[in-house]
Nucleic acid binder design. Structure first.
Length: 175
DNA sequence: ACCGCGATGCACT
DNA sequence: GTGCATCGCGGTG
């Protein structure tokens, strides 16, 4: 999964035709104290333990939804948190859902992009290769940069945040 | 520019 | 009761 995560940078993710290019992700695995999969399967994190190529959606801080792509072997709880997109499709739908107009503000954070794409609990566990999801691999390898993950307290030293270098659509710049 | 905080769900101690 | 894989706003340099 630490191989899959950087390869998602530059891929295209759409939900009901709305979305864009993935510019920022974070990797989480089962041995990782910061991961929801750490310490075993629960009702919330069940999708993380399911087959790869599916979505894991959870509620964050009681307000936002966050979207992960489940990776690797069934039962191993590895996932990649999608943190930011460069919006390319369905900008008007995103503007209505987000109630902002600037493209940079639409998908520059895990909670923002779920609101922009209409991702909720209903998407938890759904396969990524069928509607409403569409996931297309990138055509060529972009310049990927790394850094520490954002907003976590445990295992904060792990450098498992990946981004598209110098993209203006990141949730925060890389140092 | 940074810092603090409120809103709000829910898994877990 | 506590602690978040967050966001946006309002205060202060």
């Amino acid at each position: 999964m630490h191989e899959v995560a950087p390869e998602l940078i530059g891929a295209t993710l759409l939900v009901d035709g709305v979305g864009g290019t993935i510019v920022e992700v974070e990797a989480y695995d089962q041995e990782d104290p910061a991961s929801h999969g750490f310490g075993g399967r629960t009702a919330r994190n069940g999708a993380m333990f399911g087959p790869p190529g599916h979505a894991y959606v959870y509620r964050s801080y009681g307000i936002h939804w966050c979207l992960n792509l489940v990776c690797d072997v069934e039962g191993s709880a590895e996932a990649v948190l999608i943190r930011a997109l460069e919006p390319t499709d369905g900008l008007d739908a995103m503007r209505i859902r987000r109630r902002v107009v600037e493209p940079r503000a639409l998908c520059s954070g895990p909670g923002k992009l779920c609101e922009a794409l209409g991702v909720t609990r209903e998407h938890d566990g759904l396969p990524l290769d069928r509607p409403p999801f569409e996931l297309r691999a990138r055509a060529s390898a972009p310049e990927v940069v790394t850094g520490p993950r954002i907003g976590i307290t445990k295992a904060a030293e792990q450098v498992w945040r990946y981004g598209l270098r110098d993209s203006p659509f990141l949730s925060r710049p890389f140092r």
